[in-house]
């Protein structure tokens, strides 16, 4: 128990996994469907703050209404379905600041079936099949750098990220999805 107290980074793993899995949520599963698109989209990256500095692939996410979190969620809604896998992370608690710096690394792949997250396709032929199965593409590598409030060690989740920097580090040459 004493050791666990000395090591403040223990709760970061579930925190990070929750963040990544929020990005992978499906709109409809056999057992569940969100009542509204909005209630679905606001699940993505709940731990972001409206003021979070967000950089994706070296480009800042600029929010017209100063709500970077909402802008991110709107954009993320337009990505094909994803699966993220966390491979590795490391973190430092920076003395005197109340924040952790996290460098995490993993892989992510996209659904290449031609559907967006809401299940919509570009097909003009009636396929008689709106849900269909995902066709997973090859894995991309990603690296994510976060500055998060120290309160996450006590289970805080929402509104805890100060900066969010997400970059693809490897692009498979056969990807159907273009970045």
């Amino acid at each position: 128990m004493l050791a666990a107290q000395q090591d403040p980074t223990q709760p970061l793993e579930p925190y990070l996994k929750k963040l990544l899995s929020s990005l992978d949520l499906q709109y409809q599963t056999p057992s569940q469907q969100y009542a509204k698109i909005e209630s679905y989209a606001t699940q993505f990256g709940k731990s972001l703050k409206p003021s979070t500095a967000i950089v994706i692939n070296g480009k800042p996410v600029i929010a017209p209404n100063n709500d970077a979190k909402l802008e991110f969620q709107k954009k993320w809604l337009m990505t094909p379905l994803t699966t993220h896998q966390l491979n590795s992370f490391d973190a430092h608690l920076i003395p005197g600041t109340g924040v952790f710096v996290i460098n995490a690394s993993g892989k992510v792949r996209f659904d290449e079936s031609g559907r967006n997250r809401l299940g919509e396709t570009a097909d003009l032929q009636n396929t008689g099949d709106t849900r269909g199965r995902s066709v997973w593409g090859s894995w991309f590598g990603f690296n994510i750098n976060l500055v998060v409030d120290e309160s996450v060690v006590n289970g805080a989740e929402e509104d805890t990220i100060n900066s969010y920097n997400y970059r693809f580090t490897y692009k498979p040459d056969d990807s159907v999805v273009q970045i």
Binding site: I56, N57, G58, K59, V61, K75, W76, M78, T79, P80, E112, G114, R115, N116, E120, T121, A122, R167, F168, V176, V177, Q178, I179
Partner: peptide, 15 residues
């Protein structure tokens, strides 16, 4: 519509 679906909706990568 297809181009939109198959393109990562954030800006193009910038090194």
């Amino acid at each position: 519509v297809l181009a939109n679906i198959l393109t990562f909706p954030f800006d193009e990568p910038q090194p």
